[in-house]
Computed example of a mutant assay.
Amino acid sequence: MPRIHVMGASGSGTSTLGHHLARQLGIAHIDSDEIFWLPTDPPYRTPRPLAERRERLAERLPVEGDWVFSGSALNWAEPVEPFYDLIVFLWLDPAIRMARIRRREAERFGPRIQPGGDMFEASQAFLAWAEAYDRAGLEHRSRASHEAWLSRRQTPVLRLDSARPLRELLLDVLERLRRDFGRHFPIGKM
């Protein structure tokens, strides 16, 4: 108890909610980017081979463990999917989401993503990819592919608008866990 998957579009707050939820529950937090990408500079260039990703999943998200797994892991996290106790799906108005992403990218990478920077082209491609989430089809990481994946799950799904304050989102998840597990999960300092 519990194994929680927090998912949604890039910029919807999955990593932030996952981190704070795990801290509140006193359990491990693993973000899909830690498993999916090899460490490179610039980052997010080289996916880890599928077999290695699945090996890391088994190590970091043990079936008998308690954890929060944040991010999208469509088509490669099948070994742990049957063990999710709760899926939290975050959605956010696309304009707000893209503003968050642009701000986050500027804070993380500064001049590297500006014209002439070593990450400019990759940043522009990432922004175009992220912006397509709400209109892309099933062949991409998109709202459509997430909804299709969710429709095939037996695990309870809690849908939250992540424009709401983080504290409210945490309270919603903790209340759902209380209902599903019959235990009280107090919220501490954030």
Rank of each mutant, 00 (worst) to 15 (best):
R60T: 11
L74F: 04
F89N: 04
W76D: 01
S70H: 03
D134V: 11
E64Q: 12
L61P: 00
G71W: 03
E78I: 02
G137I: 13
Q154F: 05
R135S: 14
A163V: 14
R178M: 08
L158P: 01
H146T: 07
E168T: 13
D118C: 12
Q154N: 10
P165Y: 09
R153V: 10
E147S: 03
A148V: 09
V88A: 04
R135N: 13
R108N: 14
D93Y: 04
Q124P: 00
D134I: 09
G65F: 08
P156W: 11
F69R: 03
A99Y: 07
R102Y: 03
R135Q: 15
I113D: 04
W129N: 08
E131S: 10
E81L: 07
P165N: 12
L158S: 04
L169C: 02
V88G: 00
F126P: 01
D85Q: 11
E121P: 00
V173G: 02
L61N: 05
E147D: 15
G110I: 08
S72P: 01
Y133T: 06
L170F: 09
E168M: 08
L158K: 03
S162D: 06
Q154I: 12
A163C: 13
F89E: 04
A122E: 14
Y133W: 05
L177Q: 05
D161C: 11
F126L: 15
R159H: 14
A148R: 15
L150M: 12
G116R: 09
V88H: 01
F109R: 11
S72M: 10
A148Y: 13
D66A: 15
L74C: 05
E64C: 06
P156K: 10
A130W: 02
I87F: 00
L138M: 12
R100F: 09
V80M: 08
R167P: 06
S72C: 14
F89Y: 15
E131P: 00
W129K: 09
A122R: 14
W149G: 00
W67E: 09
S72Q: 05
P94R: 09
F120D: 05
L160V: 10
S70K: 01
L174G: 05
R135G: 13
R108G: 10
P94D: 11
F109P: 04
V157A: 02
P115A: 11
W67R: 04
A125V: 11
H140M: 12
R135A: 15
W67C: 05
D85V: 06
L166V: 07
D85I: 02
L127D: 06
R104F: 10
L177Y: 08
G137V: 12
Y84I: 05
A136F: 10
D134P: 02
H140G: 02
L158G: 00
A99T: 13
R60V: 07
S162Q: 07
D172W: 02
L61A: 12
W76E: 01
Q154E: 13
R141P: 00
P79G: 05
F83I: 01
L174E: 02
R108Q: 14
L177E: 04
R97H: 12
I101Y: 04
E107I: 10
A144P: 01
S72H: 06
F83P: 00
S151F: 09
D118V: 13
I113C: 04
